[in-house]
């Protein structure tokens, strides 16, 4: 059965390049290069693999800012067929993000939604659940494997200490983890084709409810001891000792 899959893609500032002001702790996120959230890449990979197996279409959805739009090219290169960038993202507010996405999704035909189980910039992990509730479809979370038979999806779901098998009728929403797959390196033909593909940008139609306010955003203070151990054997002992003291 050909599948219509929506993959939710998050664009985040590259966390490796974020700097904090040493004295005030203020985090500077402007002018930091943007990238696809790693788990979004896993979500794209899972969607593309299902499409390759069952046929159908993968539709990418980004809720971000105007600057996020070019990142859709990478999603195209990885195999996403069509994509829309919804602009107007402000602060981290999962309720609002979910509402914006759901409003768009309700206008679309879909069998399955796939997203990462959380994102590295905010770590709420709430979005798949909220969407599940808003669209009244089942959530199969932390999927390690995904398989579809007729109109039923089955996943191996990774919980803290156990793995359980879940299945649901489609449509459903699935969240994936980093262990789900190894996102592909896009073939060069697809990279070049992606460059020529159209990226649709739409302004989000839902105003931010502003029910979450950011009061401050500061880096935790860390003081470097700047100790350097040149000799491996002595260094290991000293470092282990220092860590033990810190834990206490």
């Amino acid at each position: 059965m050909p599948l219509n899959i929506i993959v939710l893609i998050k664009v985040i500032p590259d966390l490796e390049q974020i700097k904090a002001n040493a004295s005030t702790g203020e985090v500077q996120t402007d002018r930091i290069p943007l990238r696809l959230e790693t788990l979004s890449e896993n979500a794209i990979e899972a969607a593309v693999q299902l499409r390759e197996k069952h046929g159908g279409k993968v539709f990418g959805l980004i809720f971000g800012k105007q600057e996020s739009a070019p990142l859709m090219k990478k999603a195209y290169a990885m195999g996403v067929d069509e994509g829309t960038v919804l602009t107007g993202y402000g602060e981290n507010n999962p309720m609002h993000t979910a509402e914006v996405l759901c409003q768009k999704i309700r206008t679309m035909q879909f069998d399955l939604i796939i997203s990462g189980n959380q994102s590295a910039d905010t770590y709420t992990g709430l979005l798949p659940g909220i969407i599940s509730s808003k669209l009244n479809i089942n959530l199969l979370s932390n999927a390690l494997t995904l398989s579809i038979d007729q109109a039923t999806i089955t996943v191996r779901s990774s919980l803290d200490r156990k793995i359980q098998n879940l299945s649901s009728q489609l449509p459903a929403i699935v969240s994936v983890t980093q262990e789900t797959n190894q996102p592909r390196l896009p073939p060069v033909m697809q990279i070049m084709a992606a460059g020529r593909k159209q990226i649709v940008t739409e302004a989000a139609q839902v105003a931010d409810t502003a029910n979450v306010k950011r009061i401050s955003n500061k880096a935790p203070k860390s003081e470097r001891r700047k100790q350097l151990f040149e000799k491996t054997d002595e260094g290991i002992v000293a470092i282990v000792k220092a860590i033990k003291e810190e834990i206490r």
Binding site: E16, Q182, L185, V188
Partner: peptide, 22 residues
């Protein structure tokens, strides 16, 4: 392998990402 199929050792693919990003 790399240009047509996107195939390379896992570590190499990470290296590519880094070269691209950083």
């Amino acid at each position: 392998l790399v240009l047509n199929q996107g195939k390379a050792p896992k570590e190499t693919i990470e290296t590519y990402t880094n070269m691209e990003m950083y």
